[in-house]
């Protein structure tokens, strides 16, 4: 059994409360913009780009100011990491699902949640590759690629590499997003973020 104080300190070190507040704020902004948009293209743009923000927040919240000290603790970290991520992902999923209701139409159902899940997986993998502080660069760079590639003629919109553009009913896109999320959670739980020296609070 993990002591409640340890859980509390672990979450506090990762600014979990602020991260959850950011997630709710981003979801509220997304809901507001979706309600404001009466243009189909703009709605799609919101559903593709704005889930990057919760993913970036989750990635950035991986960072701990204690680094090696924490790794040497007698308690195993994976259960704490898993609980922390599960909590943030649950908050993000519920908030994005609620925000998605502002985009009416079969073509938009669950797109925020699906895309957010895939991007979050990328952010978690990014945390292992480049460190938590810069983990958000991976999903944001990918999101920019998704927006720009079809316009530049580099890839067709139907390409599996551009799964965030695919309609919600398309199963391969949903499976891809889920696979990315599971891979990210597994990597972040087992290995944690890469330790890099930085001074950000």
């Amino acid at each position: 059994m993990i002591p409640a104080r340890l859980v509390w300190l672990y979450l506090r070190a990762r600014l979990a409360g602020l991260a959850a507040t950011c997630l709710l704020g981003v979801a509220a902004a997304t809901w507001f913009l979706l309600g404001l948009s009466d243009d189909r293209l703009l709605t799609k743009l919101i559903l593709i780009v704005l889930p990057l923000a919760p993913a970036a927040v989750i990635g950035a919240s991986l960072r701990s100011p204690f680094g090696e000290t924490e790794v040497t603790a007698s308690r195993p970290l994976p259960p704490l990491r898993l609980g922390h991520l599960a909590g943030l992902l649950a908050v993000a999923a519920l908030a994005l699902a609620a925000a998605n209701t502002a985009a009416p139409g079969e073509d938009f159902h669950w797109l925020l949640v699906r895309n957010g899940a895939g991007y979050a997986g990328l952010a978690l993998v990014g945390g292992r590759l480049v460190g938590a502080a810069a983990s958000w660069v991976v999903p944001v760079a990918y999101g920019m690629f998704v927006v720009v590639a079809p316009v530049a003629g580099a890839l067709n919109r139907d390409s599996p590499w551009l799964w965030p553009l695919h309609p919600p009913a398309e199963r391969p896109a949903a499976i891809g997003a889920l696979a990315l999320l599971l891979a990210g959670v597994a990597v972040a739980t087992v290995f944690g973020p890469r330790a890099v020296p930085d001074e950000a609070p």
């Binding site: 600014l15 602020l18 991260a19 950011c22 981003v26 743009l45 919101i46 780009v49 704005l50 990057l52 923000a53 970036a56 927040v57 990635g59 950035a60 919240s61 960072r63 938590a132 502080a133 958000w136 944001v140 999101g143 920019m144 927006v147 950000a200 609070p201």
Partner: peptide, 17 residues
């Protein structure tokens, strides 16, 4: 904050689009 850089980046990217 650790969340400033990512949120500003996403907001600017979306905002200019």
């Amino acid at each position: 904050s650790r969340f400033t850089a990512p949120l500003v980046t996403v907001a600017l990217f979306f905002g200019q689009l």
